[in-house]
Amino acid sequence: MSSQRGNTTRQRPQKYKNTTAFKNDMHDKSNKTKMINNLQVNHVCNRCKEVIEWKIKYKKYKPLTQPKTCVLCNQKTVKRAYHVMCTDCGKKTGKCTKCCKSEEVVEVADEQKPFRIDREMKFIIKKLPERRRRTFNRYMDKKIDEKMNNEELREDLLKKLEELKVDDKDDDFELSGDEEGSSESEFSDKEDK
């Protein structure tokens, strides 16, 4: 902007523009940074949620090392940084736990835990030959993408594993006496030439 009196609007766009977006974990892959990036911001109003998310996004969020004192119950129960009220008091009063205003509070629904393979399934999968193991992994990835209930998914995967289990009768590839002799004679003829 110029120092000309009354000229408050700039006529040109900004001179230096960022070519790439800021990444808060580009040079820092520590567990602390991962934990901060995975935080769920809830029990606060929309404005406070945006403020905290901005702090997380631009690496300005500093987590608490020790619990803070709640302004309502005077107990050391505040576990989140930038909050002044514990979640219990916030739920009781219906106020934002950061600014203590009676605005609409944002609640994040708990997501369903991702499906994990238990010991029994790991043991069965380990016994499968490579080709069937890959078939099962493709099938499992497809089913996980369908957003099934964990119990239904487990039952479905166990059925598929039972289908893929190795039968000793299926994998016996014994050659008969005629085939063995003919193959040996072919090799001996090639060696003689």
Rank of each mutant, 00 (worst) to 15 (best):
S2H: 12
R10Q: 02
P13L: 04
P13C: 03
K15G: 05
K15D: 14
Y16H: 14
T20Q: 13
F22A: 04
D25M: 11
D25L: 11
D25C: 04
H27W: 12
K29M: 15
S30D: 06
N31C: 05
K32V: 07
K34W: 06
I36A: 11
V41K: 11
V41M: 00
N42S: 14
V44E: 00
V44I: 03
C45R: 03
C45W: 05
N46Q: 11
C48R: 13
K49Y: 08
K49A: 00
K49H: 02
V51N: 12
K55Y: 13
K55G: 05
I56V: 07
K57Y: 12
Y58T: 10
Y58S: 11
Y58K: 13
Y58F: 09
Y58A: 00
K60C: 04
P63E: 05
Q66I: 03
P67C: 10
C70N: 06
C70W: 00
V71I: 09
V71S: 01
L72A: 00
L72P: 05
C73R: 05
N74L: 05
Q75T: 02
Q75W: 01
K76S: 03
T77I: 02
T77L: 12
T77G: 14
R80G: 09
Y82K: 10
V84S: 10
V84C: 10
M85A: 01
T87Q: 07
D88G: 04
D88C: 08
C89T: 09
G90Q: 01
G90I: 03
T93Y: 10
G94M: 04
C100V: 11
K101F: 00
S102M: 14
E104N: 08
E104I: 15
E104M: 06
V106H: 08
V106N: 11
K113V: 03
I124S: 05
I125G: 02
K127E: 07
L128S: 00
R132S: 01
T135R: 09
F136Q: 07
N137D: 07
R138I: 01
R138C: 12
D141Y: 15
K143R: 12
I144V: 09
D145I: 04
E146I: 10
K147G: 01
N149L: 06
D156M: 12
L157H: 10
L157A: 08
L158Y: 03
L158Q: 04
K159P: 09
E162W: 09
L164H: 04
K165P: 07
V166K: 14
V166T: 07
D168L: 13
K169I: 14
D171W: 09
D171T: 06
F173L: 10
F173S: 12
G177N: 00
D178L: 13
E179P: 03
E180W: 15
E184H: 01
S185D: 15
S185C: 12
E186G: 06
S188I: 13
